[in-house]
Design a binder for these strands. Structure first.
Lengths: 173, 173
DNA sequence: TAACGCATGTAACAGGTTACATGATTTA
DNA sequence: TAAATCATGTAACCTGTTACATGCGTTA
């Protein structure tokens, strides 16, 4: 079984207590190249986890900022996470809307295809820049060797595909 | 809006009429590295497309094999597809259960992590082999330059990440 | 005789998305 | 004064997954 939002959130809380807002931030910065999350998934999941007693909620009142809820993992939650992390990994899933458009692009104009290339190239470049700037922040707080690999994987992926796109965009002119 | 199962199936039918079984085959062989489909999605989608009059169904009775339904796209279906293919592309999504496990692998034994690496390496190698053997079949029937790029993209992706995994697996020993 | 290829389908469910709703403080 | 940051939440919806059900002919 794949680790879903449920298990991923437990994994983050297993390191230290967090608010939903912070969980989103971690997901967006450190794991965004292999997992995607939205508030619309995070808050409902936290609510369910609390109902299942896998996490506990501590409400903090703040005056200058909105009140917040800090979630802490329970022993039961740790057991669920521990089981999930020990399960075999399942197949990676890539969904590329760009490649889908390219696959069916016979009827599109060269200009339209060129535009799609440009946009995808810009996205990859932005992702590389984001990952690389993230690495600096990350190294400051200390980073495990294994997390460094998830980073290297992302960079390798974006770099290799960017090269293919740039070459293809050139021959599309 | 991303091209979903609906639009992808229309895209395949836009080239020529097919059965659901054939659509699955095309998806599994040519597009499997950037889209994934199952019969559980294909058949219900075809049914909906028929109800919306975007495709028509022709029932073929066979004696030595199960009967089959051949679906043909309608003018309305072509209009829907044409609109979809002209829309801007949306962000690519990668979900890697392997990277997720690696990210949270602090508490796992070195052996367990090594096993995850082995399995992921084997998967990538299998995917490269599948894509490469597919290329041969593909070239025979004639392949557009653009489809060749979707292939190159897949190979580049798998090759680059495989290298990262092999290096990391070595230092994990 | 086991497995694979051909061939279709449904019902229940899970999981996540989208859109909406609120609102103070700080920074540019 | 516009935008960003902090901060939470729900309701409706969409899309796809999983499991089940069927069955003949051919190949290993």
């Amino acid at each position: 079984m794949t680790m879903k939002g449920r298990e991923v959130i437990l994994g983050i809380l297993q390191e230290s207590p967090h608010t939903g807002y912070e969980i989103n931030d971690i997901l967006q910065t450190r794991l965004s190249h292999f997992f995607d999350a939205t508030f619309g998934m995070i808050y409902p999941t936290l609510k369910k986890l609390e109902a299942e007693k896998l996490v506990t909620k501590q409400q903090i009142s703040q005056t200058d900022r909105p009140n917040k809820n800090i979630y802490t993992i329970t022993a039961a939650g740790q057991a669920v996470f521990s089981k999930a992390i020990n399960e075999p990994t399942s197949d990676e899933i890539l969904k590329s809307d760009f490649l889908m458009h390219l696959y069916f692009s016979q009827d599109l104009s060269t200009e339209q295809v060129a535009l799609f290339f440009q946009e995808e190239i810009a996205r990859k470049e932005a992702k590389i820049a984001a990952l690389q700037s993230q690495l600096a922040t990350w190294l400051e707080n200390g980073m495990t060797e294994q997390r460094k690999i998830t980073f290297d994987y992302g960079i390798a992926y974006y770099t290799a595909t960017l090269a293919v796109l740039k070459k293809a965009a050139k021959s599309n002119q």
